[in-house]
């Protein structure tokens, strides 16, 4: 289990502030929701945490170790996994191969060993295959292992993406709108999956989500962003009751319909 802390994080694009002075502390083993209206800076925040965008100011720490100056691939290697809003499964690979790709960091095979086909390479591949199948079973997608990723529905692709992140054994998992396009029963299954990821795998989860039912149901705490600022932070009950939140987000946005 690992905690993630975001301290005085600011990001501006040529004078335009995308994030200003954001402080968020996510303790180990928490499921944290990030909500806010469109353009509030939620995805930007995930991009900054995962190292895709460098912040103008501030610090992000994983278990006290700064991540802020690392490349995105190094942040991932330190144990921060993520999924994307639009599915980014790798085309041309089967579902199983996609998940195996997620193990990049944990495997050791070098170019030369692979080219020559040393016996150790085959052993490692077999192990990787096993672990990938295990992760697919964990998210309930094992029967799709040999399918082409592109042939799956969006919801299924996102589950495969989650499996692809899980095989890397991340400490923290960042999910960008995992419930988009899911029917209510599927949302309930996702709720249950997220709990299992936390409880069985000991992974801290930070989730940007619009589907209020999921956020309120599964998150331990919720952070509300508006125009790049944190406007509230608390348990679901507190957030639901916060008048400022109601006005800035729930009240004015059509998203409230989905609640």
């Amino acid at each position: 289990m690992a905690d993630l802390s975001i301290e005085r994080l600011s990001l501006s694009f040529g004078g335009l502030a995308a994030l200003s002075d954001v402080d968020i502390a996510v303790p180990a083993g928490e499921i944290r929701g990030i909500i806010g209206p469109n353009g509030a800076g939620k995805t930007t925040l995930l991009n900054v945490i995962s190292g895709l965008v460098r912040p103008t100011e501030g610090e992000i720490r994983l278990d006290g170790q700064p991540l802020t100056r690392l490349k995105a691939s190094e942040v991932a290697a330190r144990g921060v996994g993520r999924t994307f809003q639009t599915s980014l499964l790798f085309k041309g690979m089967t579902v199983l191969e996609n998940v195996m790709a997620g193990m990049h960091q944990g495997l050791r095979t070098s170019v030369l060993a692979a080219a020559v086909g040393l016996p150790g390479v085959l052993r490692e591949e077999r192990r990787a295959r096993e672990r990938a199948r295990e992760a697919l079973a964990f998210v309930g997608m094992l029967s799709f292992a040999e399918r082409d990723g592109a042939s799956l529905s969006f919801g299924q692709q996102r589950l495969v993406e989650i499996a692809r992140s899980l095989v890397a054994e991340p400490k923290v998992l960042l999910l960008d709108e995992p419930a988009v396009g899911l029917s209510p029963p599927r949302v309930a299954e996702l709720d249950e999956l997220l709990r299992r990821i936390r409880d069985k795998r000991g992974i801290t989860i930070i989730m940007v989500e619009h589907v209020i039912r999921l956020v309120m149901g599964v998150c331990d705490r919720i952070t509300v962003l508006n125009s790049g600022r944190k406007i509230a932070d608390g348990t679901p009950d507190v957030i639901l009751a916060d008048p400022f939140v109601k006005e800035a987000y729930l009240g004015k946005s059509s998203d409230a319909d989905r609640a």
Binding site: S50, G51, L52, K71, A72, S73, E74, A76, A77, G81, R82, F84, L88, L89, F90, K91, G92, M93, E97, M100, A101, G102, M103, H104, Q105, L107, T109, S110, V111, A113, A114, V121, E125, A128, R164, S165, A168
Partner: peptide
């Protein structure tokens, strides 16, 4: 067929997603 090949394909399909798997 190795991790190297999967990394190459990941690179082809999306640099952002490739980075997210380290």
């Amino acid at each position: 067929r190795s991790r190297v090949g999967r990394a190459l394909v990941a690179l082809r399909e999306s640099e952002v997603a490739a980075e997210s798997i380290a």
